[in-house]
């Protein structure tokens, strides 16, 4: 009988739970995945939320997400109306939500680049030309990353005229730039591709032994991270709201807030700035 009572109680509770979901008020919600240092993410970005709240005059909430694809899903479902996307995830999101706009990018994101790094045992050293990495083992970062996957794969296919699976002895996805560095440094993979900013900060933090792993090539530059705003914010939060958000982002100049991304400042951006990313994504078959 006890089990039966428990069951009935739980049923009622769960039903009441499902009924009571509609009472939560709408906030202006944003999400952001920085390209490095995800510790204390909520604490840091709640400060950004406070700043936006002050500038915009509406309640602003930060929603932590785990991956670019989760950020795209949340944006598409209108669970977040503003997102700090990587180059690729921004393009994906704007295709899924027609009318959404890239409104700002980091100063550094106009000319972003990736480093190819190699374990010392490969004998590869820094060179202006694309390195001979045929038949090596190679690791990308996360599957949806622009600097850790999309652009490196594009340059590999351009120079080696082969898909990575054919060009390399083994292809991995480490999941994160710091993982890529750690795995190449440990020799688990011979070569890897990494976001140049993550490499630089790991280097200055003393996490890299340059006798073991070093940069062997740097890619040409490409546009990367940007703020993208949802198509119907003006309808939801009032006319001109998207412009207000853009102004608030461009005026964000407190080093403490900017260091969460980490960018030196935000500058103007529009959808067409990211067309190279779309072209590349189509070329390597990540977008149909």
């Amino acid at each position: 009988m006890k089990i039966l009572t428990t069951m009935i109680t739980s049923l009622t509770l769960i039903l009441s739970l499902l009924v009571s979901v509609n009472v939560i008020a709408t906030h202006f919600t944003f999400t952001a995945i920085p390209d490095e240092n995800e510790s204390q993410l909520r604490t840091r970005f709640e400060k950004v939320a406070l700043y936006l709240e002050k500038e915009l005059g509406v309640k602003v909430k930060y929603l932590p997400v785990k991956s670019y694809s989760a950020a795209v899903t949340a944006f598409r479902n209108n669970q977040v109306q503003l997102a700090w996307f990587g180059g690729l995830s921004g393009v994906q999101a704007r295709i899924l939500v027609p009318g959404s706009q890239a409104i700002a990018q980091g100063y550094e994101d106009q000319f972003f680049k990736s480093y190819f790094i190699a374990h010392h045992s490969t004998g590869l050293t820094i060179n202006e030309n694309f390195p001979d990495i045929n038949d090596k083992t190679f690791t990308f970062g996360s599957k949806g990353s622009t600097s850790g996957r999309l652009m490196p794969q594009y340059f590999i296919e351009q120079h080696l005229a082969k898909k990575p699976q054919q060009a390399f002895k083994r292809v991995g996805f480490s999941g994160d730039h710091s993982r890529t560095i750690a795995q190449v440094q440990a020799g688990a993979y011979q070569v890897g591709a990494v976001n140049y900013k993550v490499w630089q900060s790991a280097l200055s933090a003393g996490k890299i032994d340059t006798n073991k792993v070093s940069v062997i090539w740097e890619t040409p530059t490409y546009p990367d991270y940007q703020w993208t705003i949802h198509a119907n914010v003006d309808a939801e939060f009032g006319k001109g709201f998207a412009n207000k958000v853009q102004a608030a982002l461009l005026n964000m100049n407190t080093p403490e807030l900017l260091s969460s991304f980490p960018r030196s400042s935000f500058i103007n951006a529009e959808n067409k700035d990211f067309e190279p990313i779309l072209t590349v994504a189509k070329k390597i078959g990540l977008i149909d």
Binding site: T137, Q185, A186, G187, A188, K212
Partner: peptide, 8 residues
Amino acid sequence: VNFDPLLE
């Protein structure tokens, strides 16, 4: 495949 796992 293992070269320098010790550091990590």
